[in-house]
Simulated assay, not measured.
Amino acid sequence: MAPVARIRSVVLDCPDPRALAEFYAHVLGGTPRAEDDDWVVLEVPGGIRLAFQRAEGFVPPQWPRADQDSQQFHLDLDAGSTWAEMDAAQEKVLALGAGPLDLDDEGGKRDFRVYADPAGHPFCLCRIESA
């Protein structure tokens, strides 16, 4: 089946587009490019494009609630294949300003941990076992 369209950007609403783009640049790489005070684009190495849009009156999602005032989606980020890589990635995102939401990996039985970015959007660091 031929696609109708391709994804151009994943856009996150936030109160401060520049600050959130800088956070994700430190986490994922790339250099934020501000088109104006209300729209900043981050082209992540590998072709992914995240954009950050100012939303006045922004209210962060509430994780793990599933009602209408809660998250609409979240990002899963590959933090490596070992627990040491996962721990190192966790230390870095917390130092960059991420907030812990659910760090219980159930003694190594669960391959993800959940955080909030500085604007409150949930994201996961995932341990991806190499094939």
Rank of each mutant, 00 (worst) to 15 (best):
M1W: 12
A2M: 08
P3H: 12
R6W: 04
R8Q: 14
R8P: 02
V10D: 13
V10L: 15
V11L: 07
L12D: 05
C14V: 14
P15L: 07
P15G: 12
P17W: 01
R18I: 14
R18C: 04
L20C: 10
L20K: 01
A21L: 10
E22L: 04
Y24R: 01
Y24L: 05
A25P: 03
A25T: 05
H26F: 07
V27Y: 01
V27N: 00
V27C: 06
L28Y: 03
G29N: 06
G29E: 09
R33I: 15
R33D: 14
A34Q: 06
E35H: 12
E35Y: 12
E35N: 08
D37C: 03
D37S: 01
D38F: 01
V41E: 11
V41W: 02
L42P: 02
L42C: 08
L42H: 05
E43L: 01
V44Q: 00
V44N: 02
P45Q: 10
P45V: 06
G46P: 05
G46Q: 09
G47K: 06
I48A: 15
R49S: 10
L50C: 10
A51F: 05
F52N: 00
Q53T: 13
Q53N: 12
R54Y: 08
A55V: 08
A55C: 13
E56V: 15
E56C: 09
E56T: 13
F58P: 03
F58N: 01
F58E: 00
V59H: 09
P60H: 04
P60A: 05
P60I: 04
Q62S: 07
Q62T: 06
W63K: 00
W63T: 01
A66T: 13
A66C: 10
Q68N: 10
D69T: 15
S70H: 10
S70D: 15
Q72I: 15
Q72A: 14
F73Q: 08
H74F: 15
H74D: 14
L75N: 05
D76P: 13
D76T: 14
A79Q: 03
G80N: 09
G80F: 00
S81L: 03
S81P: 14
S81W: 07
T82W: 02
A84I: 06
A84F: 02
D87S: 12
A88I: 09
Q90A: 14
E91W: 00
E91Y: 02
K92G: 08
K92P: 06
K92S: 13
L96W: 14
G97F: 01
A98T: 13
G99W: 00
P100K: 07
L101K: 04
L101S: 07
L103W: 09
L103E: 13
D104S: 04
D105W: 06
D105N: 14
G107H: 01
G107A: 10
G107N: 10
K109P: 00
K109Q: 13
R110Q: 10
D111Y: 09
R113W: 00
V114N: 02
Y115R: 01
A116F: 03
A116C: 06
D117R: 04
D117H: 02
P118Q: 04
A119N: 01
P122R: 00
F123P: 03
C124V: 11
C124K: 03
I128L: 11
E129R: 13
E129G: 04
A131V: 14
